[in-house]
């Protein structure tokens, strides 16, 4: 069974302002299957559709056309969310709560029984290295600590599918290494991991396959043997595949 299926999915954003309607294409005819147990990387420039694709999987957006399936169920499906762990690009946590309270909330929302909840929450916070900050308010956490708390809420319920939206953005090299090791650990336990990134070097170290998005279209899918052992193969393929749509030109070195 495929963990994720995009079947000819398009997402058009329509904005209406003073009678004028503007349309922006978030995704265009995306057709992609991600197998169970695979680590799949989504590469693309800003605005290429990576986050749109992820939000369609999580039911935060509705597709304009096509169907999205997660773990065999058509999205959005509230029940299947109990088997998915999601960490967005920033730690959008309520800062009035402590680390423990926040994770306790997400554990309850994920359906973890009350008898088991406290143990799982404490174990997960220790696992992500926040054991000394369990009872501190999230407003006192550093960016790196918030990112760890965000990962903790994505994993506390032992999901089958883990979706990470730009998990290494803004992290220091040590934290980046820890995230990489986490992804490899998840893979060793048979989890399916989908993550989006700008960082080619990280993607090529952990992924089984990668997909390159450009302007909302999936322009290339590559398998590991197409870049492993070949210096800059992935970077070259990426540079050839993408088209800048942000109105910014290349840096000229003449």
């Amino acid at each position: 069974m495929n963990a994720i299926r995009f079947q000819n999915v398009s997402k058009i954003y329509r904005r209406s302002h003073l009678g004028r309607v503007t349309e922006t294409t978030g995704l265009s005819d995306l057709k992609l299957d991600i197998e169970t147990g695979e680590v799949f990387g989504l590469l693309g420039l800003n605005g290429s559709g990576k986050t749109t694709a992820i939000k369609l999987l999580m039911g935060l957006h509705h597709p304009t056309k096509g169907e999205v399936e997660t773990l065999g169920r058509r999205a959005p499906d509230v029940a299947v969310l109990a088997r998915i762990g999601y960490a967005p690009e920033s730690a959008y946590l309520n800062k009035t709560l402590t680390g423990r309270e926040s994770l306790r909330l997400f554990a309850a929302l994920s359906g973890i029984p009350a008898a088991d909840r406290e143990r799982r929450v404490t174990e997960m916070l220790v696992k992500v290295g926040l054991d000394k900050a369990l009872d501190k308010r999230l407003c006192e956490y550093s960016k790196g600590m918030l990112q760890r708390a965000s990962l903790a809420q994505a994993l506390v319920h032992n999901p089958e599918l883990v979706i990470l939206d730009e998990p290494v953005t803004g992290l220091d090299p040590l934290a980046i290494k820890e995230v990489r090791l986490l992804i490899l650990w998840l893979k060793s336990r048979g989890k399916t991991v989908l993550f989006s990134s700008h960082d080619i070097s990280e993607v090529e170290r952990v992924c089984d396959r990668i997909g390159i998005l450009s302007g909302g279209r999936l322009v290339k899918v590559m398998k590991q043997d197409e870049w492993q052992g070949k210096a800059d193969a992935l970077e070259t393929a990426f540079a050839d595949a993408v088209v800048r749509t942000d109105g910014v030109g290349p840096i000229r070195m003449e």
Binding site: M58, L81, P88, S90, Y92, N94, L109, S110
Partner: peptide, 17 residues
């Protein structure tokens, strides 16, 4: 406020009707 702070992303990414 939860939409603005995007805290709602995490809440609704869990099995919450």
């Amino acid at each position: 406020s939860e939409i603005e702070s995007r805290a709602i992303f995490l809440i609704l990414s869990h099995p919450v009707r």
